[in-house]
Design a protein around this nucleic acid. Structure first.
Ligand code: MN
Ligand code: MN
Ligand code: MN
Ligand code: MN
Lengths: 218, 218
DNA sequence: ATAAAAGTTTAGATTAGTCTAAAAAATAAT
DNA sequence: ATTATTTTTTAGACTAATCTAAACTTTTAT
């Protein structure tokens, strides 16, 4: 069984390697976990000896199949708990991440399967992120970054890329939530900001920065 | 903020001091936490320096007001989680303790208040143990050990004293659950075993040992 | 009252996780 | 192709929690 700390390292390595194909670097892990490179070097040796990652000195790490399965089970727990907090306990979507960081480390397969059942086998968490199933499979739907969306095409918000409370609170304030209808009415060349109509309301400006962190689908 | 380990020691000391008035001894703590006396000595020094207990060398410890409040908040979390697992996730009463041992250490007052609300402010957990309220207050009802119950008096099971899975499974098998109607039809002098009618069924024998671990009320 | 037994504390060691500072390797710049 | 910079690893130290073995106190038995 992995310790709380080992689980956090493994999950972080999994997220850093998502999408990309290159090895994950020591400093990247250190930055993502707010720790020091020397500490990371020790830990990746340990995870490597457990065959959860492959480590080549000075070149970084790659997650193994076994490591990925384990990481996915932690991600599954994290996202199921976030869903529980929002759907059953009426948390706001900006309040759940920190608590889920703790809850994801509870060890009980019975608990997680019963929780999944209780929630009706959800496929996405409150931020639109996919929830891996019991076998670690993820249902990925095609989505596009709002920044790159076509002008005057009706779209629906399906996920956020940045889960920071301040960003989520801002989104709530302007009416952006998962499922919300959005329409880009104009793209400002100068700074990349967008004029967007949210839920058929009067168009308002959002920054390029914000538009890069909102995912939409048709 | 207390560590996972400090919380377990404090809770254990609280439970060992419940009822009794004498100081809690090093070996009692060691036994209850499956650790060694030397380890306990170190930890009680730490808890003492945090003013959660009062420690007199060679004579044991007493929990302080501050320590008791903290212990009660952990007990509250433990019992609310057990209630959640049984009432919402359909766990059996013999499956919840181990998981609650982990869940009780999640730090989030928002979480626990919302959970309490979600469960409808329950006053007892699945084993009939009282759930302290937000302020640490416990609603104690008068109850008697089944072993000492009057003959042929209708009573209702209100709690168990021993939460081991094997005992709880045995109780489930013979129909004893919280709220079940029971009637002691005869007390066997020889070994203290009781003949008991459970839910108006034919009387059956239960051991003195079992009868000492079942609490009933009128 | 003294000796034996039981219980508790101290001393010294170990493991997990962390850090800083120095050494080594890889990458970038002249 | 050397040199300078950046990144990574190693070395050594620290804290929390744990253990065993030895020393010390208290309690019990003679
Ligand atoms: Mn999250
Ligand atoms: Mn975590
Ligand atoms: Mn319990
Ligand atoms: Mn616990």
């Amino acid at each position: 069984m992995l310790s709380y700390t080992e689980e956090n390292y493994l999950k972080s390595i999994y997220h850093l390697s998502e999408g990309g194909t290159k090895a994950v670097l020591t400093n990247e892990i250190a930055a993502s976990l707010n720790t020091k490179a020397a500490t990371v070097t020790d830990m990746i040796k340990k995870l490597s000896s457990k065959e959860l990652i492959e480590y080549e000195k000075y070149y970084g790490v790659n997650i193994t199949k076994k490591g990925k399965q384990l990481a996915l089970s932690i991600v599954r727990k994290h996202r199921l708990w976030e869903t529980f907090l929002v759907q059953k306990l009426n948390f706001q979507w900006d309040q759940v991440h920190e608590v889920a960081e703790q809850l994801e480390h509870i060890h009980s397969s019975l608990l997680i399967e019963k929780l999944d059942e209780f929630l009706g086998h959800p496929t996405a968490d409150p931020h639109g992120h996919p929830i891996p199933d019991k076998n670690g499979r993820i249902k990925q739907e095609k989505q596009v970054v709002l920044k790159d969306a076509l002008i005057n095409k009706t779209l629906y918000v399906c996920a956020v890329r940045n889960g920071s409370p301040s960003f989520l609170q801002y989104l709530s304030k302007i009416g952006v939530q998962i499922g919300a209808k959005v329409l880009v009415t104009e793209r400002i060349e100068f700074d990349g900001s967008l004029e967007v109509s949210i839920k058929d309301n009067n168009p308002q400006l959002i920054s390029r920065e914000a538009a890069e962190n909102i995912l939409v689908k048709e």
